[in-house]
Design a protein around this nucleic acid. Structure first.
Lengths: 134, 134, 134, 134
DNA sequence: GTGGTCTAGACCACC
DNA sequence: GTGGTCTAGACCACG
């Protein structure tokens, strides 16, 4: 399992771990039934406090992404893939909503917002959205 | 000046004050030269410790939104309006970018993202974006 | 008597009054024996709180620049002119010393400091110092 | 890290801390990446309230001199050294300008000012400026 | 352990 | 009256 944590990131480390695991699950890199590294191993690998990994794993269990396998550690649940994919879609939706509400609250005109969306879409995807004539 | 602080909000109180003042400035509700309530008055009004308001006002000064008028209080600076508007536009841009990067990172198709954008745009603005056929 | 106070100035208003009076005295604009405006008049003229003018006049009395004339107000003392001129020279000396100590404390090389001095001298006086070849 | 705060100083304690840290950074005593003492430790060492140190550290963060390393404390940023050096040079320049403007405003002759500069330069540095014949 | 936030209450200079 | 500074002590999230 390949995770990278960034000290500069404004998100706490345990959250970075949680989110990256969920990304890997949604992307199919971590399939149901696969065992994740032990708390100690992952902590060593990430050069991070074991408490931090434990916290992340705990949250992932609460979310139903990980489940304990008696005596042997933690593994990806069977429902994890769908759950993580739904999560991701919902996350995108919420961020878009937040951005658009901010725009509206800021009194930006609709066409200005459209412009911003297209601009950033190109920036992120490296190509135009449909209907855009570059 | 009408401010409302929410205890449930995950943002600290002083930040809520800072942001709401900047909103009011950007919206023109607080024009340059206008005096803001005294630290004590606003603290009373918001049922908050005066130090918390003072912290917010201090931050607004370092951002160049407020300036002291010796002995008589604080007022909106002449450059405040532009500064706050620029801030807001940039905030929208960053949130859009974040959402779109999340979408890309999540492997959503371009047309799916467009769909989401239009959906949320309608939800927020109560009408369609140009080029959308309702 | 022509005084101008600036709200933006970081010095308190009462000090601005004190210093400007002393400037006028040093420059000979306010000669010994001349009466200064009453507290109320000057306060009106400067659009300032009378307390502030009173404070300034009090300080000027403490410094021996003003003295009360029974029943008629305050006037410039006979010793005021010399006193104010000495003050000014001393003020310049202190500021120079402060700047040079800061420079030394900051580890600036002697020739760098000289360069700065000449640069700023030109800026302020509009011409070169002796020994400088423009 | 060796800091000393002076109760007599007219500058607030938090500012003394800020400035001394910036001095140490500019002088290279505090290099980028170095961790500063914890708020509590420095507070104990200086016999000062932790909030006061926290305020100073917060200001240093907004100035980009310190950055948080999550959960482990604060460290000197990579850009800190240049930033602090520029600050110091600019401070010297401003003080010199202030002194020279005062001199000009006071009607001192150019050669008088030069004399003062040389005098104070010697006093501060213990030796003559170039071009001066001791 | 770390920093961040908040409250409560005090003193100061300035107006 | 105003803002600015400082102290004391509390709680929180994070590691």
């Amino acid at each position: 399992m390949l995770l990278t944590i960034q000290a500069n990131d404004d998100r706490p480390i345990y959250l970075q771990i949680v989110q990256q695991v969920k990304y890997a699950v949604a992307a199919g890199v971590l399939a149901p039934g696969v065992r994740v590294p032990s708390v100690r191993d992952l902590a060593r690998q990430l050069v991070v406090n074991p408490n931090t990994v434990a916290r992340a794993y705990r949250d992932l269990q609460t979310e139903g992404v990980l489940q304990p396998v008696r005596g042997t550690g933690l593994e990806i649940t069977s429902a994890a893939t769908k759950r993580c994919r739904d999560d991701r879609r919902e996350l995108v939706r919420q961020r878009l909503r937040s951005a658009l509400e901010e725009a509206r609250h800021s009194g930006l005109e609709a066409h200005e917002v459209e412009h911003l969306v297209k601009q950033e879409f190109k920036r992120v995807n490296g190509r135009a959205v449909s209907g855009d004539k570059p």
